[in-house]
Design a protein around this nucleic acid. Structure first.
Lengths: 338, 338
DNA sequence: AACGTTGTCGGGAACGATTGCACAAATTTA
DNA sequence: TAAATTTGTGCAATCGTTCCCGACAACGTT
């Protein structure tokens, strides 16, 4: 069943050699127009489709790029993926998506799998549990083109595309301060993630610039980045148990923001009455949330596009690229129920 | 750059033939333990990774399955994809996801692309704009294993996995009726989609069973399935312009449900005060919606798992399978702000 | 008439891995 | 001791495609 027609079948049927058929199909100049037409017509008639597997073997490239994200069920990533695809398909590249579900082990497995499937390059956003990046460094050292986006590994010298996390965090925190809140906590993902570091930095800068002090007790990390409800809940309860209970929280992640709202709803704590919240999120239904969430939105689609353009540039570079750049795109602050 | 080590390199380095190395790596009994150990050790030392492309060419299968959905940024599909992956990876299959964005043209392109990339089988949920399924029928006739889920093509004789859409729709509509609403409209996707037909049927059955008549003016189709805000808005305005304005709407899709809430919010129409809504949705943050939405939830993860199991069974079948089945899984009704 | 061009085309190796067959050496059996 | 069998390994074909070399016409040039 399912016998695809090959170049050999055409050659045999037409009494030609495979080389001639191949050349005719690729429209080489050294084939007569008559032969060319004959081959093309017959190929179309029997529905010839070139076998990309054979091509990949010969050319040693698969015309596909691997994407490593934590979850596709995350507005930020699904929008970034749309950006990635918009460029990739135009340039003739196939996109293979893999999810880490914020697990380091799954990240390692997925990366190995993609590499062994001969992807021509990798677009990576690290899992929240990833500390050791040797699985990526090893491939990068071997020459596999790689571009990081969102959660980047500073130790690997390659292109990076990120949002201006520090500025976004600054603006969100400053907004809370301007709204009159003084005890602003910070709920974030794993401490080693680049986005966590940058957002924490923006949060601290905003506090400092407005004459508020940074309270270490107000900063809580959720290593699973909001994937586990109980984790988020327990961190929030820790905040609520403090003597000087915070009156607002700046949340540093999409899943974390919605998780946060869920927790407060379940604890019957009124937002923003008892506790104000502002957070990073790319969800497009935030307006429907009760209460709606003041959010920092990242240009996810654009980030995906840019990262892909840079990756393809690396892949198709004639000579090894030595100069790498980090692109930083501005976020947008959406103030809701001001 | 990036020169992967092949079986030949091992053979040359060890003074063996490629066949011996190949057999040693696959742990055949006809290779002496000494040679086997030597090969294995050396392979590990230089980090040998078998080339799956070469394998695919020889075995004429890629150990990968293609998935065709409308959007990954849709809770139902992202959950289904998680179900698909959970089975596929266990069975050694790679998952390639493609999005149609509810466009027929993109569906055709994606399906062709997947087929030419030699996927071993296809998991398909049709786009809302798909009427003609000859692009799939042709591949199916050629012998490409295929399983439909969610939005199925009845004309193609193969396995299908769906939710009990009719029952789910019946329950949601009946719930609205029991809550006292009498003029219940129905907002749904393209009329030709299997899910639209089934949900419409459940809606009508609920009305009939409760002594209400079906009003054709109350049934509105959005061919883009909620992807285009203006389309949803105009359909809702049509409903609002009716002499006997509906007092409730049963919505038949995820994007459509949230789109619906957005429209009412923008029109300053109170839900459920002025208009009650119940709809299909798999979002896990529905509790945070304002107002929260009574929803019909599909077992998306389970549907993905089942469809994948059935597809792999088709792929690995020794003899052509002639008997196909349609699995129907129950939905769950979540009543909110009753 | 001998030679160089040009235009068309075929042969065969290569990409990396598997596998049926052949064949030598080692071992067992008659 | 000769024959038969087992054991371990190599050769070569194969998957579908491209591409480097040549082959061999039909020309035009000296």
């Amino acid at each position: 069943m399912f016998e695809p027609v090959t170049i050999k079948d055409i050659a045999k049927a037409l009494g030609l050699s495979t080389s001639t058929v191949s050349r005719a199909l690729r429209d080489t100049h050294e084939i007569s127009v008559a032969t060319k037409k004959m081959v093309l017509d017959y190929a179309k008639e029997i529905g010839y489709q070139p076998n990309p597997i054979a091509l990949s073997l010969k050319e040693r490239r698969s015309k596909s790029i691997g994407v490593v994200v934590s979850e596709v069920a995350n507005s930020y990533f699904s929008q970034a993926i749309n950006g990635i695809e918009s460029i990739a398909y135009d340039r003739g590249y196939h996109v293979i998506i893999s999810q880490t579900h914020e697990s380091y082990d799954r990240e390692v497995v997925n990366v190995q799998h993609l590499a062994s499937r001969s992807v021509d390059g990798l677009l990576v956003s690290l899992s929240s549990q990833t500390n050791d990046i040797s699985h990526l460094k090893q491939l990068h050292d071997k020459g596999l083109p790689m571009v990081f986006f969102d959660r980047v590994a500073e130790e690997i010298n390659t292109h990076k595309v990120i949002a201006n996390n520090e500025k976004g965090a600054y603006e969100a925190t400053a907004h809370l301060i301007r709204s009159g809140y003084k005890r602003i906590a910070h709920l974030t993902s794993s401490s080693q993630l680049s986005i966590s570091i940058e957002r924490l930095s923006g949060y601290e800068a905003a506090l400092n610039d407005h004459g508020l002090t940074v309270n270490a007790n107000y900063i809580k990390h959720c290593p699973h980045g909001g994937m586990i409800y109980e984790e988020t809940e327990s961190k929030i309860k820790e905040l609520l148990a403090l003597d000087e209970k915070p009156d607002a929280i700046f949340v540093a992640g999409d899943r974390l923001s919605t998780g946060c709202l869920s927790v407060f709803k379940n604890l019957n704590i009124s937002v923003p009455g008892d506790m104000a919240i502002a957070g990073f999120s790319n969800s497009d239904v935030l307006d429907l949330f009760n209460p709606s969430l003041t959010s920092v939105r990242q240009p996810a689609f654009e980030i995906g596009k840019l990262a892909t353009q840079m990756l393809i540039q690396l892949i198709e570079a004639k000579y090894p690229v030595e100069e790498f750049e980090k692109k930083v795109l501005d976020t947008e602050l959406f103030v809701r129920h001001a």
